[in-house]
Design a binder for these strands. Structure first.
Length: 558
RNA sequence: GCGCCCAUAGCUCAACAGGAUAGAGCAACACCCUUCUAAGGUGAAGGUUGGGGGUUCGAGUCCCUCUGGGCGCACCA
């Protein structure tokens, strides 16, 4: 669509006293059928001390252009209507849809972005709330790649702390245990610890040995964390979510990095030793959303707390040389992140750009791992695949596990990514398992329809006469195709994958309307046919690329 | 108590850096398969954009306030 803005701005610059840049800043896409491009004249009215409708009329009456059908002045707007054949050819020929077309013009080729995400406690199977983190981040990774970036995806493994020590304690006397058992073990030991204070004491002894480098303890921590990380990543891998690097929190203790950074911090007057002998950062005056921000970074014995280890890790990321450094974090970490960011600035480092997302709520309240009131990602995955299988059975009378996975996992991702990150997602099974309407399957289905048509023809549509595409349905579809590139940049700028689901649904709807009103294969006019084949092949490409940016696959047949 | 985020149709969500008559999906109603995949399309219905003020030519969008929900508020990770 940018090309139309340019076009109109050039016409106006020629026909009026206005500067092209100023015009470009005012032009917009009007609603519905009010035209292709509109110029609101209200700001001009102020400058020129004239009524907006008079300015609009004056501008409109002077304009003639061979590619314009008409120019109307309505209620202070100048509305530009292009000839359909001009729109079709101009927009479709200039539409950038492939990764190559877009990345080579993005000016971002070869840059590197570091993205850290998920980084959940390695204590049990992830629930769908945590998965929101992974899904948003994974989509962003795909968008950056699409624009030509190198991506470096990190996972910070919190292998130090009471939670892990609890699990080590609970499992050390067991013969064997699997990842699947851990959630229940975790719930049980927390329950038990409530009535038996002995447990907590022993857990702290374990933790102490681990931090002090006791080889056997380290081995048993490692064994447990390994089971957790393998179990968690195996689930994410099934969803095609992967990481390039796992960074272990314990490294910062065992390699004595925490002490080194502590020494650096000691040079600042902001660091003080409180009455209990702990090191604390005084963060008053920093942009942190609490009254008297203080960040305690060590225990009484000067050993590190999580905040210090996180500062060390954040410094590593900031100094990695990446052009951008992004972190996806739950909204519960907002204030905490501001505190880490302030500490980073104190050390002369740039904090990460953070993407916060709100929690997933269940119809009867929120999830709690400890209480066991969670919807596990694994359960959602198997439910949604089973539902897909049933639907395939019903429609086609066959069982196909591979198709069911593509359909099911697509629905899972789509249903969570559909909501803007800052909004809570209300998860209910009926909506999540519904494949109709605004869903990934709608897009996948229409993609398959297009592939089916393309497979039935030998006609060469590589050099079509696009001026033949003039119906309202064709034009609406073409306009939406022309928006693909803008959509990708919007996601990139706002770090918001839900814009992709909006786009692909809108695009698919436009295609479906075109498909149901016009024939493609069953027409005599071969020229028109090849133009339409070209149009739908571009549409298929845009659907596929949009879904891929969400981490969703397409199918040639459904 | 203080701070940040959110509130749009019965339900789940849109509305691109304030622009024209606020759009979809689900559910419910009425239609459309001897034609390229009906997992689809069409039509009708559904709204004082949580309440109240303000700024503006123009507010779902910006400001204030109230109500309701989410998330936080050093010595957890």
């Amino acid at each position: 669509m940018n090309i139309l803005f340019e076009y109109v701005a050039n016409i106006l610059a020629k026909n009026t006293q206005l500067e092209k840049q100023q015009i470009l800043s005012m032009l917009e896409v009007p609603a519905q059928d009010k035209g292709d491009i509109a110029l609101p004249c209200f700001k001009l009215a102020k400058e020129m001390r004239l009524a907006p409708n008079i300015i609009a009329e004056n501008i409109a009456k002077d304009i003639t252009d061979e590619n314009l059908q008409k120019v109307e002045a309505v209620a202070g707007f100048v509305n530009f209507f292009f000839k359909p054949e001009f729109l079709a050819e101009t927009l479709l020929l200039n539409a950038k849809i492939t990764q190559e077309e877009i990345s080579t013009n993005s000016g971002m080729l070869g840059k590197t972005v570091l993205i850290e995400h998920t980084s959940i406690n390695p204590n049990a199977s992830p629930h769908i709330g945590r998965a929101r983190n992974s899904l948003i981040a994974d989509s962003l990774v795909r968008v950056f790649k699409f624009l030509g970036w190198n991506t470096d995806v990190h996972y910070f493994v919190n292998d130090v702390g009471k939670q892990i020590a609890m699990l080590v304690y609970a499992t050390q006397k067991m013969q064997s245990f699997t990842f699947a058992d851990l959630l229940q073990i975790y719930i049980d030991i927390n329950e038990e610890a409530k009535t038996n204070p002995q447990i907590e004491q022993e857990v702290f002894v374990l933790l102490n040995k681990f931090e002090n480098g006791d080889k056997d303890t380290i081995a048993s921590f490692n064994k447990l964390v390994d089971v957790c990380i393998k179990g968690q990543t195996e689930i994410f891998n099934r969803l095609n979510i992967t990481w390039d690097k796992f960074d272990y929190e314990s490294k910062y203790i065992h390699e004595n990095i925490t002490n080194k950074i502590l020494e650096e911090l000691k040079k600042s007057p902001k660091l003080f030793e409180d009455e209990n002998g702990r090191y604390v950062l005084d963060q008053r005056g920093e942009p942190i959303g609490i009254e008297e921000p203080m960040l305690v970074i060590t225990r009484q014995d000067k050993t590190s707390l999580y905040a210090l280890r996180d500062i060390c890790y954040s410094l590593d990321k900031a100094r990695s040389g990446a052009d951008r450094n992004i972190l996806v974090l739950g909204e519960d970490q907002k204030v905490y992140f501001q505190q880490i960011a302030a500490a980073m600035r104190l050390l002369g480092a740039e904090p990460a750009e953070v993407v916060h997302y709100s929690f997933v709520l269940l119809p009867d309240g929120k999830m709690s791992t400890r209480k066991g009131t969670v919807v596990l990602l694994e359960d959602f995955m198997s439910e949604v695949v089973q539902k897909a299988n049933e639907a395939i059975m019903e429609k086609r009378g066959i069982v196909d596990q591979e198709i069911a996975k593509v359909v099911g996992y697509g629905a899972l991702k789509y249903s969570i990514l559909k909501s803007s990150p800052e909004k809570n997602v209300l998860f209910d099974w009926a909506t999540a398992l519904n494949f109709n309407g605004d869903s990934s399957l709608y897009a996948q289905y229409n993609y398959a329809r297009i592939q089916s048509i393309l497979s039935k023809t030998d006609l060469d549509y590589s050099t079509p006469n696009l001026t033949l595409l003039t119906t309202p349905e064709e034009i609406a579809l073409i306009k939406q195709l022309a928006n693909f590139e803008t959509m990708v940049y919007n996601v990139y700028e706002k770090l918001n994958p839900s814009l992709i689901t909006n786009y692909v649904f809108s695009l698919t709807t436009k295609f479906s309307q075109f498909y149901s009103t016009q024939n493609i294969l069953n027409i005599e006019d071969k020229q028109l046919q090849s133009a339409r084949l070209y149009l739908i092949s571009k549409t298929a490409e845009a659907i596929k690329n949009s879904l891929n940016l969400l981490g969703i696959d397409v199918l040639n047949q459904l």
